[in-house]
Design a protein around this nucleic acid. Structure first.
Length: 559
RNA sequence: UGCCGAAUGGUGUAAUGGUAGCACGACUGACUCUGACUCAGUUAGUCUAGGUUCGAGUCCUAGUUCGGCAGCCA
């Protein structure tokens, strides 16, 4: 959305200032950014912020953005994820200039590593992973040099080549940078550059058995692609000196610079890929795109729009201070978008039958309903009305609380787009549940007739019983049960009420509703036709977000 | 407690030495054939202590609190 973007562009932040200065000073001719996901899981709402920042900033300054898969760890990666990630980025509305894989640069990276060895800046280490950890030192003590640190260049070269040829088992040797074991920055204590892993890579197959580590690979990837501003999240801050070291010592032609911003934390939401993957693997959710998941695919299936997600992350701004954004802000942006776009419809989620006793038994009428009051030019549609209808259980009470404007014995309400009805009676079953409500209607009050002699406090929605279509409604609450505790057994971390399924009715006007179509069910909320489970015969609607309500039934006027 | 970083209403974010503003939330009220939307209003903030300055959220010093870093993960 152009308007959204240009509005946001006016507000500056430290990254836009840097980019703008670099351009002005001629340090870069064209800004090039990248979004570098590892294909080891699905993208989530947190990634949306990163995607937005990288693509949007480049766009604002007339630059380019690459989508690059940071696939340097074959053990965790899979082409299922590379496909899903592309779909999600595209769905969010971003077009990448280049589509790259870190694995395409393996040979170049290998050559750069050799250059490092020849300069005496890297060495092959025989220490085991445990020994390496033990000699790294701690936060307060410096580490010790490896006994293999001073091998000759020739020996290192030979050993590194043998690593590549597969002469060693996993973990037997690593290539390390020779920097400073006493550095207060742990990342500079001779970090591992290459490890041995006899694993099949989704892209390179079994061509390689040594794989570069992130700290070595990432700066090289950026430099190779001509990235100018490498924007990442704060947890990489401590890697920056190493990033610059790699660029310099590998003598890269292009010199990219890394800048870090605070990642998105959403209240009541866990975004760790590890946790999300466990939920998927242990089948506690219906896949990565379960509508309760904070994944892009989950949000899509739930019914969120890319526009809403973009305007949400855009409003967040780019800062270094980290905080936690209220989920309500995301909901606000969804409502804002859907209010304008979603056609209105009437649906009854928890039905109770209403008989209009003085309405002719053989009569049906077609009532007019506005498609969307925010877009009057869309006009109206016809909805059927007759003697028996369904209304929602919440709209009738035998004993109304204060300020209750809906149906109760003796009260008159408006049936939206139809008539005024007055409750005359109701029927209970053996257990005391109200199963049927009786009303009378006033023919003079027909919607659109201009009747003004009487006013009524409440308007309720309904669905004609004769023509109603059964439908399933999936009502969602936060996935997480209370405060997240990683120690807890997985099942206990999720809210048992995170999904509630209700069987109710939609009107015949929705009989052709298609997957991913979004509707506002009047007085309920916004719903999406589920793309997986909805069928032409049995429609399934996902609650995207409910409408706001200033009526609190639990907290009546007295306070 | 070694290094790095951050602290502005309940939440997010602006103010680049000169009137602390915006958005969300919450609460009032108006409007309403959606208790929605919209509109009007209320609420509430510069972590602490010193210092520099005519003037400090902003600069300096010290402290406090919070976050990140000890994968052959990214």
């Amino acid at each position: 959305m152009e308007t959204t973007s240009s509005t946001t562009a006016s507000s500056s932040d430290f990254i836009r200032e840097i980019v703008s200065d670099d351009l002005k000073a001629g340090r870069v001719q064209e800004v090039v950014t990248r979004f570098p996901p590892e294909p080891n899981g699905y993208l989530h709402i947190g990634h949306a912020k990163s995607i937005f920042i990288n693509f949007e900033i480049a766009r604002e300054y007339g630059g380019k953005t690459n989508l690059r898969f940071d696939d340097t760890n074959p053990l965790k990666e899979d082409s299922e994820y590379v496909n899903a990630i592309q779909e999600d980025v595209a769905w969010l509305g971003f077009k990448w200039d280049g589509l790259y894989f870190a694995s395409d640069y393996f040979e170049e990276m290998y050559q750069r590593a050799i250059r490092l060895i020849k300069k005496g800046k890297a060495y092959v280490d025989d220490l085991s992973a445990d020994q390496l950890r033990e000699t790294r030192g701690t936060l307060t003590e410096s580490g010790q040099n490896s006994p293999y640190r001073d091998r000759s260049v020739e020996e290192n070269l030979a050993l590194f080549e043998r690593m590549r040829k597969g002469e060693f088992r996993d973990g037997e040797r690593v290539l390390r940078a020779k920097i400073d074991m006493a550095s207060p920055n742990l990342n500079m204590r001779d970090p591992v550059l290459y490890r041995i892993s006899h694993a099949v890579h989704h892209n390179t197959g079994d061509k390689w058995c040594i794989y570069p580590m992130y700290a070595f690979a990432h700066p090289l990837e950026d430099a190779i692609e001509g990235v100018t501003h490498s924007l990442c999240t704060l947890e990489f801050k401590d890697q920056r000196p190493l990033y610059d070291w790699v660029i310099q010592e590998c003598e890269m032609e292009n010199v990219p610079h890394q800048y870090e911003f605070g990642r998105l934390n959403l209240s009541n939401t866990v975004m760790s890929k590890r946790y999300l993957k466990r939920l998927v693997d242990e089948k506690l959710v219906d896949g990565w795109d379960d509508p309760r998941m904070p994944t892009i695919s989950g949000l899509r299936r739930r019914g969120f729009t890319p526009e809403a997600i973009r305007s949400f992350v855009s409003e967040l701004g780019i800062t270094i201070a980290g905080g936690e954004v209220d989920y309500k802000l995301l909901e606000h942006h969804v409502r804002l978008d859907l209010n304008v776009r979603a056609p209105r419809a009437m649906a009854v989620i928890k039905p109770i039958k209403v008989v209009i006793t003085n309405y002719p038994e053989d009569l049906t009428e077609m009532m007019e309903m506005e498609i969307n009051p925010e877009q009057p030019e869309l006009g109206t549609k016809k909805v059927q009305f007759s003697r028996e209808i369904y209304i929602d259980r919440d709209d009738f009470m035998e004993v109304p609380p204060p300020k209750y404007h809906r149906l109760y014995p003796g009260n008159e309400v408006r049936l939206k787009n139809a008539y005024f009805v007055t409750c005359t009676d109701f029927v209970k079953d053996d257990e005391g549940n109200v199963v049927e409500v009786h009303c009378t209607y006033d023919p003079e009050t027909r919607s659109g007739s201009g009747f003004t002699a009487r006013k009524v406090k409440g308007t309720i929605h309904w669905v004609d019983a004769k023509s109603a279509i059964q439908a399933e409604f999936r009502l969602y609450e936060p996935l997480l049960a209370g405060d997240f505790d990683e120690e807890l057994p997985l099942e206990q971390t999720i809210n048992p009420d995170s999904i509630k399924i209700e069987h109710g009715y939609i009107g015949a006007d929705l009989k052709d509703a298609k997957p991913q179509e979004k509707y506002q069910f009047v007085r309920h909320g916004y719903f999406n036709v589920d793309p997986k489970d909805s069928t032409p015969e049995k429609k399934v609607f996902n609650l995207i977000v409910s409408l706001k309500s200033s009526f609190k039934i639990d907290n009546p006027a007295g306070k």
